[in-house]
Design a protein around this nucleic acid. Structure first.
Lengths: 189, 189
DNA sequence: ATTGAGTAGTCATTTTTATGACTATCATGG
DNA sequence: CCATGATAGTCATAAAAATGACTACTCAAT
């Protein structure tokens, strides 16, 4: 039951509708939590029922009405309790790594293709997070922002996102190089 | 349904009992997949029923008998199919990052404590993986092993584990430093 | 005039994962 | 002699997450 805390944390930076929240989970939040829109809508409903978030209807011209949610005081208290509890180690689950574990017992072409694709995705994410970081810190330097800015949480998680994707990218590229080299060495026999 | 593939990939390096598999999922495999022993036993049962793995009873003196499992040809084919299918992006889910996202709206002490603990865990894992890597490559250099070794899959995933934990560690340490500095700056007012 | 994309959201069901509670045996330390 | 921890598992159930199939409205392009 930690999706709820991810939602609460995401809502700290301003009111969001379920739809906007889903967008957020597609970009920045995806750094540390992944969820489908349906899950988010369901979770928002539960959170509202428990009084941890509150929503207000916003009537819109020219597009469907929406409900904007914000975290309530009990919601903040819940986040506080959650933070105080010890974090269970992060679960890592990556199909691609499973495939690499089986490297050379399975088709190398498919593996190389997927590693290449993953490297590209990582690169795209690095760019995306870079843009996000610039937007978050405005015209300040990173150092200045981290010292005196007021909402550094999202910036910090985004920094980790960049580092993670950079590492991911480099590893994919290196792994492809190794597999290709071995393939060529093998072909010479 | 990818736990099954993680199990198959883990069994490529030799016969394992459910118990040994659980141990493997606690160390090396934990790099890219996490599962409870109970899940593994259940999955092995299913895999055996479908003929993707086969087990043989090993009668032991002085301790309970065990069943050693190995991947069958249909199992290898299944892994092949799995590898050919495009990998869905890895799901990331980390409680600690959720907490950092909420940084400064929640108790900083608790956050710093958990980041510090996480950094220590990361350091321990780096050491563990280092040992594992040395064991895998034997007396060869890394370069030599990656070029000519025969089972490089586990080595490659382990390399990523090291890089990941290193990045994790560094980020935790930096984040702690930033939070501490801000706290001191705040205290001076 | 219709199709496709974007906004905004709901419902029901299945699949996967996680948890708690168990059964055994053997070896070791105190 | 008893407790603890390692080995080697099983069963049932609860919780979480993923999936598929929907409803509506608007705008822009074909």
């Amino acid at each position: 039951m930690a999706l709820r805390h991810a939602v609460l944390a995401a809502l700290l930076d301003g009111e969001l509708s379920g739809y906007q929240l889903a967008k957020a989970f597609d970009v920045g939040v995806a750094n540390f939590w992944y969820a489908q829109p349906q899950q988010l809508y369901a979770e928002l409903t539960r959170l509202e029922k428990e009084g941890l978030v509150a929503g207000r209807e916003v009537v819109q011209e020219s597009r469907p009405n929406k409900r904007l949610f914000h975290v309530t005081d009990p919601g903040l208290a819940e986040l506080e309790t959650f933070t105080a509890a010890s974090a269970k180690p992060a679960v890592v689950r990556d199909d691609l790594l499973v495939k690499v574990q089986a490297a050379e017992r399975v088709d190398t072409d498919a593996l190389v293709a997927q590693l290449t694709e993953r490297a590209q995705v990582a690169r795209a994410k690095i760019d995306l997070f870079g843009t996000l970081l610039r937007r978050l810190r405005g015209d300040r330097t990173e150092e200045d922002f981290l010292r005196h800015g007021d909402r550094i949480g999202p910036y910090l998680t985004c920094l980790r996102g960049v580092a993670f994707e950079q590492e991911n990218h480099d590893w994919c590229v290196r792994t492809v190089a190794i597999l290709e080299e071995r393939r060529q060495a093998h072909a010479r026999h």
